[in-house]
Design a protein around this nucleic acid. Structure first.
Lengths: 364, 364
DNA sequence: TATTAGCAGTCTTACCAAACGAGTGCTAAC
DNA sequence: GTTAGCACTCGTTTGGTAAGACTGCTAATA
């Protein structure tokens, strides 16, 4: 349907529309016929441009706020611009080099990695970023270690194919050290190369059919199970949104002039229900996807645009990574930055996993 | 000097000033003679109040923006109010109960604890919070564990008297498992009950004088030393500010009407040099300290007020915890919330440390 | 001497009208 | 199909006025 409408557009109309949208993205003030004239490569009068802009408005790509005030792109206008740009993503070497300085690749914990993704994405795009972990259970377990602390707690470390997950459990002081080592080995042997989801599913079964000599692990199993179901519940309920750079919204005139709008958006950003709606997308081939204005199924974001991509590990999507900004955003730059940053994180993980992925388990 | 000036104030002037400041804190609009009249317990005419307010203005406690527009407290006015209030901090049971729901006491890592303090303080006070770690090296080491991961890195876990510090180091794949266990035990035996500072100082010496049979630890020592000096440098340079709830600034009319001001403040909040200046204070007995307006030695914060307190472990101040807001803030409520929240964190730590602090080291 | 009523003076805010100007739509000519 | 030119629209700025909120001051009062 979109495609058909676009065929109505003459080549020149297309170029004019692109010029117009680009002008608005840069200037943040309504597009006038003379502004387009300055930007446009061919010699063409403002009167002709007015005719063309008028036609584009009639087709729904542009919109006038008031008669004498220039035009502004509609969501449809931005959508056309984005579709026409998506082929050639500019990879500005200088910019990529700048982004590279933002990385800190000493993180091993999944939580830290997610935070770091959010932080780097926001810095690289200059917009608030959001990361939602949705594929936590799909992570593949590589190694499990239970490490007792002096405080009466124990640290549960689960190495996965995407970083280390950690949680704590309370322990009885009667449990002796050897038990933890044995339990770690047993857990690793039992669950290695399973997903978190299947570990949780199987753990109950194992516990039932447990032989006598392993009964001492029961306490640990129980605590572990509790810790993990708790973690997953927490992720599914509230805390699964990680965001960064909220303040960058205030760098854009549309929000400094109207802080109420910014507040609304930032509120939605912390509502996991709505953000989940906003970030959701059909499976398709594109690595970076845009939702523009009315395309976003969340009331308070319909004046915004959202760019999203997936953080994938071993081909599985673990998290959605996105940024939120005004519709007037630099789509090309954002697409390339987002793609690059998330790609780098994926590469980092892949490299690390290859280091000694086939080394045998060594918990003792 | 302050005290002397205050003695010039009649009892009634003091009460009027307190009424006036309170009114402004609640209403956020200039104090008028009739507003004070409504608030004031005694029957007193607006004309008399005008005389009194005029006198208070002459003494520098209040200030008029323009002739016909009511008055606003000066920094000195707020200071008087704060000093006169500091005796009786109200402990609203309901509010404290609300705050208590914000705690999540399953954190074991120092970094997470610091983040959590920032987060809870901000939620409890409704202002942006800042935590600066300044006493990292004063932490006392309890236990050291080096845990190899499958990715060719090793996790360094240092249990201290205030949570676990973690860092990573790269390892050669030739190092065998037993070495890590032995090294952990050796490190713990060597450095337990020393501070981080003295560990770093002594580590080099130990390395020099190391016996032959311990030479295999050298690699680990080197990596460890590198990891730790790196961590400390990072803390001392840039990343030592943890903040939370920046957006809450926009809930106050002084900043929604003037987002530029908010941006300025938020910028300063991420400048460790300036924040360090702003949070610094003389050693004194007070648990919560206020700096008001001109008392803050940072240009861009001179329209603000800052409340700070120390996060202490075993009597040593580890971090400064503070909030930033307009001078028109609810000082009493903030003092009690800040004191309560940080106090709870301190208690939590103390309890945990007491659980099995005298249990012997158990790394194998 | 302290308090108060009353009033004049000051300054802000709201409102309105006029002038301005940026930008459009339309028409007529090319 | 393109363009120059002009009338028109509508937001923005400016200036000027009226209303309202407070204050400072003065003079009367207890």
């Amino acid at each position: 349907m979109e495609k058909e409408e676009y065929t109505n557009l003459s080549e020149r109309k297309k170029r004019i529309l692109i010029s117009a949208v680009e002008d608005y993205i840069q200037q943040a003030s309504p597009i006038t016929s003379s502004a387009v004239q300055n930007k446009f490569e061919e010699k063409i009068s403002t009167a002709t441009l007015r005719n063309e802009l008028n036609a584009l408005e009639a087709m729904g790509f542009l919109r006038q706020i008031h008669t004498s005030g220039g035009r502004v792109p509609t969501s449809k206008g931005y959508r056309f611009y984005v579709n026409s740009m998506m082929g050639d993503i500019p990879l500005d070497k200088k910019a990529l080099a700048d982004i590279q300085t933002l990385f800190n690749n000493r993180t091993v914990y999944l939580g830290d990695i997610i935070n770091e993704i959010a932080s780097v994405v926001s810095k690289a795009t200059n917009y608030p970023s959001v990361v939602m972990l949705h594929g936590f259970e799909k992570l593949v377990i590589k190694n499990i270690k239970i490490i007792p602390l002096l405080t009466g707690q124990a640290l549960i470390l689960i190495e996965t194919n995407s970083g280390v997950i950690n949680n704590t459990m309370d322990i009885k002081s009667t449990v002796v050290m050897q038990t933890f080592t044995d339990a770690s080995n047993f857990l690793t042997q039992t669950f290695a190369n399973q997903t978190i989801a299947s570990m949780i599913k199987n753990m109950n079964e194992y516990k039932q059919s447990m032989k006598k000599e392993l009964l001492e692990y029961k306490e640990i199993f129980d605590a572990l199970l509790k810790a993990f179901t708790g973690l997953i519940e927490a992720l599914e309920n509230n805390s699964k949104i990680i965001s960064s750079g909220e303040l960058k919204l205030l760098e854009n005139p549309e929000y400094t002039e109207n802080p109420e709008k910014a507040k609304k958006i930032l509120n939605v950003m912390h509502n996991s229900e709505e953000m989940s709606q906003a970030l959701k997308h059909e499976v398709d081939e594109k690595s970076v996807r845009f939702k523009i204005g009315s395309e976003i199924p969340v009331e308070d974001l319909q004046e915004c645009a959202i760019a999203t991509t997936d953080y994938e590990v071993d081909g599985e999507s673990i998290a959605s990574v996105g940024i939120i900004g005004p519709q007037r955003m630099d789509y090309a730059k954002i697409a390339s930055a987002l793609k690059f940053v998330v790609g780098e994180f994926q590469n980092m993980k892949t490299l690390q996993n290859n280091v000694n992925t086939d080394e045998k388990n060594d918990n003792d």
